[in-house]
């Protein structure tokens, strides 16, 4: 089978000899147009992979920053099908940067799994991270995703040990997302040594690239992670930057995208400088 966009991206990074930057933003936060402008700017700002949050009313694994982000998007009328519209619009002038949709299962279940996979694929989505679908429920969405030739990317955590790890790695493709802390997004950060050990443990079990996330806030942290892992994932810190550029009614102030993209640029520079 030919290489997917996501596989090619990680292969290119390997060739370049550097770690990648995975950036998370919520689709439609604070509104569709601003969000599209932001997502369109991410590749140029140095994002290697775009993780796009599908807003959900009850994001149980997320901290305050992403909860609020999700609700802002929903209040401004975001839906799952508009999230696919956003991807479609992005793909009009970008064919290289992989987009991973991240979120919770219920909106997909209500949309209908088969229809969703067809629509997501034609919109230009490359894969999914669905927080509340452990391997025990692979038959429901993970297997159909793989059958469509898309990636199902699994989270592994500090509690994924022993027999659990092979079970979680099975049916995972594209990359493995290591959640470096116990907890929700945007809170604590893991120690360098703990991350290093965990990535080594994963690398012993899989040939897939490993991305590390949760709690990365600065270019220095991103750089450090990118030296031991194949990519660093930054989410809440980007959302916090976005939030700084909202007015009192949670609407975008002029220059929001530029401000957020400048911050992404500092993260990308950090990651790019890390292995030189």
């Amino acid at each position: 089978m030919s290489q997917t966009r996501l596989e090619k991206r990680f292969a290119d990074l390997k060739e370049e000899g550097r770690g990648g930057l995975v950036t998370f933003v919520t689709a439609g936060d604070p509104d569709f147009e601003t969000s599209l402008e932001l997502v369109k700017g991410l590749p140029k700002a140095g994002a290697d992979v775009i993780e796009l949050g599908m807003p959900f009313s009850d994001p149980m694994a997320d901290g305050p920053a992403i909860q609020a982000s999700s609700l802002r998007a929903l209040r401004n009328g975001m839906t799952l099908s508009k999230t696919l519209d956003l991807v479609r619009a992005f793909r009009q002038d970008n064919q290289d940067t992989p987009i991973i949709l991240m979120g919770y299962y219920n909106p997909i279940y209500i949309y209908g799994v088969d229809k969703f996979l067809t629509d997501a694929k034609s919109a230009g989505v490359d894969g999914f991270i669905i927080v509340d679908l452990p391997p025990e429920h692979d038959d429901e969405f993970c297997i159909p995703t793989m059958e469509q030739g898309l990636h199902f990317i699994r989270l592994t955590t500090p509690t994924t040990v022993g027999d659990r790890l092979p079970k979680v790695l099975n049916n995972t493709s594209g990359f493995v997302y290591y959640v470096s802390i116990l907890g929700i997004t945007g809170t604590a950060a893991a120690s360098d040594s703990a991350t290093h050990e965990a990535v080594a443990r994963l690398k012993a079990e899989t040939d897939l690239p490993v991305a590390v996330g949760f709690g990365i806030r600065t270019p220095e942290q991103a750089a450090k992670v990118a030296t031991v892992a194949d990519a660093a994932v930054v989410g809440s810190a980007i959302i916090d930057k976005l939030r700084e550029n909202l007015d009192d009614d949670n609407q975008a102030k002029p220059g929001l995208s530029q401000a957020v993209l400048e911050y992404v640029r500092t993260l990308a520079d950090g990651v790019r400088g890390s292995r030189t």
Partner: peptide
């Protein structure tokens, strides 16, 4: 029914 939870919680 089922167990639709984050991986962190599955082992527990």
């Amino acid at each position: 029914g089922g167990r639709y939870v984050a991986e962190t919680l599955m082992p527990l």
